[in-house]
C-alpha cells in the first residue's frame, strides 16, 4: 500500500513540476538583451567619481582645490588637483583633477570628505579602454564634456 501511495505522490509531484515549467514557458522573458537594451542604473550605483557643477556659475565646478579628497584617498588614486583664481572670484577653480580609476576602489571617502560636496559618483557602468592610461580620467575635462552634451 505504501508503495502505491508513494507512486501516486511521486507522479503528482512530477505533474506539479511540469506545471511550473510550462507556466514559465508562456510567461514573458525577464532577461535584458544587453547590447540592444539597457536598464536604468540605480542611483546608488558607484562608478568613478565625477565633479559636480556649481549651480551659480555653470562654467566652473564646485571644487575649490582644497586637496582634502587627495589626502584622504586610501588608494592614492587622486592626483594633480590644480586650480587658479579667476578674476573677480573669491574661490579657486579647478583646472585639472586626475582620477586613476584603475586603483580606485569606489570607497566613497573622497565624496564624503569634500567640504563643498563637489564630488559624486557617476553612473557610467561600461567604461572600456585598451590601455591603462585610458582610465586616468581628468574629471575637469569630463565635466566640461558633460556640460557641452547636456
Amino acid at each position: 500500500m505504501r508503495v502505491v501511495a508513494d507512486i501516486i505522490k511521486g507522479a503528482y509531484s512530477l505533474i506539479v513540476g511540469m506545471g511550473v515549467t510550462i507556466r514559465a514557458f508562456f510567461s514573458p522573458v525577464v532577461t535584458c538583451q544587453y547590447p540592444r537594451e539597457t536598464i536604468n542604473i540605480s542611483p546608488r550605483f558607484r562608478s568613478h567619481t565625477k565633479l559636480v557643477g556649481d549651480p551659480e556659475n555653470p562654467d566652473r565646478t564646485k571644487c575649490i582645490v582644497c586637496g582634502m579628497c587627495e589626502r584622504n584617498c586610501p588608494s592614492n588614486s587622486i592626483k594633480k588637483i590644480e586650480g587658479e583664481k579667476k578674476e573677480g572670484e573669491k574661490k579657486k577653480t579647478a583646472t585639472s583633477y586626475i582620477l586613476d580609476f584603475t586603483t580606485c576602489s569606489q570607497c566613497g571617502i573622497c565624496v564624503e570628505s569634500c567640504p563643498v560636496d563637489a564630488l559624486a559618483f557617476s553612473s557610467d557602468y561600461n567604461p572600456v579602454g585598451f590601455r591603462r592610461e585610458d582610465f586616468h580620467y581628468d574629471l575637469v575635462k569630463e565635466y566640461e564634456k558633460r556640460k557641452k552634451t547636456a
Partner: peptide
Amino acid sequence: KVAGHMQRRIGPK
C-alpha cells in the same frame, strides 16, 4: 529555444 523560455530567457536570437 524551449530551454530558454522555460528559464524565462529568449534562447538563440
